[in-house]
Write a protein that binds this DNA or RNA. Structure first.
Lengths: 137, 137
DNA sequence: CAAATAATTATAATTATTATAAAATTAAAA
DNA sequence: TTTTAATTTTATAATAATTATAATTATTTG
């Protein structure tokens, strides 16, 4: 964690047409440097420790802004809460049903039938089960 | 639509350890015969026409029962509403961002890297974009 | 039939997310 | 710099999907 500097993030946001306000920087920094696929509430609770005045609405506004500008991708791993990922490459997400951790898997290949004529703009491959650690128990 | 008879569905539920109450039969019949990947509310509104006394709680109870007994699969195609599918085979779901229709795609092959040691119990491949029809406009 | 069990309903509670309007901040113009 | 305009953030209320609860109804079993 902690590989991107605030200055680099600032330039990146500007390059993507987003005014780099303090909160936006902090939210994007969190997504980038802690790649835990957090939910909006996890981001809120984390930043609240450092910035007690921050509001949930800001988190949602900012995440929706990032989604629209395609800076982050949405993960619908569970039915009740959306997660966000600053890694844009096409990869799978696995959720352990025991420890609730989310793992990334690289997708080597995928072949679909019948997609001719369809314009596919978004893809999500979501998996669930038990991770190696939790199976030992 | 309408290929399974009530009698067949009844036997199928019993075989899966589910008491075949009237409402359960109707809900499973709807999922089977109209394969539109409905949300809980769509099922509720449809059955309400025929059975005005039916309650939303029954729909949710029954769908969760079917999920636990693995008679249906959950689809998290959109962040705000779950959909249900009585087809259990592994296939992809595509949602048209214009007409909101859901299409099934057959998956010919999928290769993942790094899954050794993981026990994968659930898989979902969700796509979004524009269907052939809507692209012409 | 009576007792026990299970299913269903109506309602309230919970919770993630969005909408709204006011306040605060930042940028632009004079 | 001061004023004005635009944007961002906040606090709060509103929505909406889902779950929890407790009472009622239906079904099964002895």
């Amino acid at each position: 964690m902690g590989n991107w500097t605030i200055e680099e993030i600032k330039n990146f946001l500007i390059k993507n047409g987003i005014r780099p306000s303090f909160y936006r920087l902090k939210i994007y920094q969190y997504l980038l440097n802690e790649r835990t696929h957090p939910s909006a509430d996890e981001i809120f609770l984390y930043l609240k420790k450092e910035i007690p005045t921050i509001s949930r609405a800001t988190i949602y506004n900012t995440l929706n802004l990032f989604l629209n500008k395609r800076l982050v991708q949405l993960i619908n791993l569970e039915r009740d809460e959306a997660r966000y990922d600053a890694t844009l490459s096409w990869h799978a997400h696995f959720k352990c049903l025991n420890c609730n951790k989310v793992f990334d898997f690289h997708i080597e290949s995928l072949k679909l039938k019948g997609v001719e004529g369809f314009q596919i703009l978004e893809k999500q491959l979501n998996l669930a089960g038990y991770c190696a650690q939790c199976q030992k128990k």
